[in-house]
Design a protein around this nucleic acid. Structure first.
Lengths: 163, 163
DNA sequence: ATAGGTGCAAAGCATTTGCCGCGGT
DNA sequence: ACCGCGGCAAATGCTTTGCACCTAT
């Protein structure tokens, strides 16, 4: 079946080779922010005749075509994510390394204003928060996926990721 | 004369060698965010018998000691600045590569709230704005940031910098 | 057919490190 | 004197590339 990323590649007239199809699938399925090494691992599991050089060339190409966004969360390797889900930023749990995505309109407004005051049109920006989970008293239920931070309902939308 | 950075080094009990004194001076004088190569260039101009390995070792040491902060504005090389002037962020002029510093209390408030809503205590954060000067009609366009490191990311106080 | 993609290994870069003589304290 | 420091070059770790072959279009 044709993946979302593959569709985008075809739309942009990219030659669809076997390797690219596999990488497109891996990217379409990814719920996290894998680095090249990890993409290579996942792609290899599906096909085996893909070289890491191709993964590098492909993510680079897709980034240039606006299909992928490169991120740098520290640690020396670039990480990638599809550019579909609207503007959002990342909060990194400094204890587990987990990455949580969020978007916040007020923040967008504030930085746009800051740029304007300084005499600039905001072209892009980068925001990363590093935090520590507020201690939730341990309970008999292990912290599995899907815990929702308690707190007032807000306009902060978030998506959980990264194992 | 004893520079500000040298003072900090002495206070923390670091052995003050000739090379470190020179590097401390260069850092104390810097109004911008030089990378290691640039620090090496400036230091060499003052002394000549400093190796780039020493510059690397020194900035690393000073960063561990909290005297310097490492920044990544894209372009693949780390840049450094003394950690004295309070919390601030950077706006990078995507056409000239110039870096403008600013601080904004409202922004601080917003991100603190975001973290809280997600159930985290904010430990640190990173914010970089990439913008284009308003008004100034585009002429030649010397692009700056190369590969590596994903491009983006009142009482706005700002400080100018970087040639 | 042919422009472009792929693998492999080598090259590139920024940064780190081993070894060993040298210099602060 | 002692231990850390600095120089040099080799080593790293991630990423890019040259070359020769292969394949979508």
């Amino acid at each position: 079946m044709e993946t979302r990323i593959e569709r985008l590649c075809i739309d942009r007239g990219l030659k669809m080779t076997g390797q690219r199809r596999v990488i497109a699938r891996v990217l379409s399925d990814a719920e996290d922010h894998p680095d090249v090494e990890e993409l290579y691992r996942r792609a290899s599991a599906l096909d085996g005749r893909i070289s890491i050089a191709t993964v590098y060339r492909t993510v680079r190409l897709l980034e240039e075509r606006g299909i992928l966004a490169r991120r740098d969360f520290g640690g020396g390797r670039a990480r990638y994510e599809p550019t579909e889900h609207g503007t959002h930023h990342h909060l990194i749990d400094i204890e587990s390394g987990r990455v949580i995505e969020f978007a916040d309109p007020e923040h967008e407004r504030v930085i746009t204003e800051i740029a304007a005051r300084l005499g600039f049109n905001l072209v892009s920006h980068r925001l990363e928060l590093f935090g520590r989970r507020i201690d939730v008293p341990a309970r008999d239920t292990p912290a599995v996926a899907g815990r929702k931070a308690a707190g007032p309902p807000s306009d902060v939308s978030s998506r959980q990721v990264d194992p």
